[in-house]
């Protein structure tokens, strides 16, 4: 649909002019609240019903590759599925990466040769291709209002 895309692009332009580093920390006024976006993220295929899923939401490729997320969430795990809502995002393009902190020690465990020993995944179920999932595979559009992502954890 052409119309919503144009509208999203216009919104992005207008938000870009307002942007500050602390934008997401500012209380939302009513106009901004109308523009804010939420993403409901559902996790399926959880093998171990323990610990928590650690979620990082990124708005740039550089940040996704190793920088700071715009939001970080911790989602308790008690069964084969879990979900959370990433609230108050600016509409735009984002990618999510997660790992399942199965043992609850607050970090992504690796074996002595540096390979992950806890499950990890990304938005769009972007595959690992001899390395972590790529931004190009994981990025998705977030429109004003409600959005959804489903991530399978093997």
């Amino acid at each position: 649909m052409t119309f919503p895309r144009i509208k999203t692009a216009a919104l992005l332009l207008s938000i870009a002019t307002l942007q500050t580093a602390a934008f997401t920390m500012l209380p939302l006024n009513s106009a901004q609240a109308q523009e804010a976006a939420n993403v409901t993220v559902t996790f399926t295929g959880i093998q171990s019903p323990t610990g928590a899923i650690m979620v990082g939401v990124y708005d740039t490729e550089a940040a996704f590759a190793g920088g700071q997320p715009v939001q970080g969430l911790r989602v308790e795990v008690a069964g084969p599925e879990a979900s959370t809502v990433v609230a108050g995002l600016k509409p735009g393009r984002y990618a999510i990466k997660i790992y399942h902190d199965v043992n609850g020690d607050g970090r992504m465990n690796t074996n002595p040769f540096g390979m992950p020993t806890e499950p990890y995944a990304a938005s769009n179920n972007a595959p690992a291709r001899m390395g972590p999932p790529a931004w190009a595979d994981a990025v998705f559009d977030v429109a004003a209002g409600e959005n959804a992502q489903s991530i399978t954890i093997d």
Partner: peptide
């Protein structure tokens, strides 16, 4: 872990970047 170190570990473990 960044992408480079992941790749290095992966290659050292017996496989390398896809082509």
């Amino acid at each position: 872990m960044n992408r480079r170190s992941f790749l290095t570990a992966a290659a050292a473990a017996g496989f390398a970047a896809a082509a």
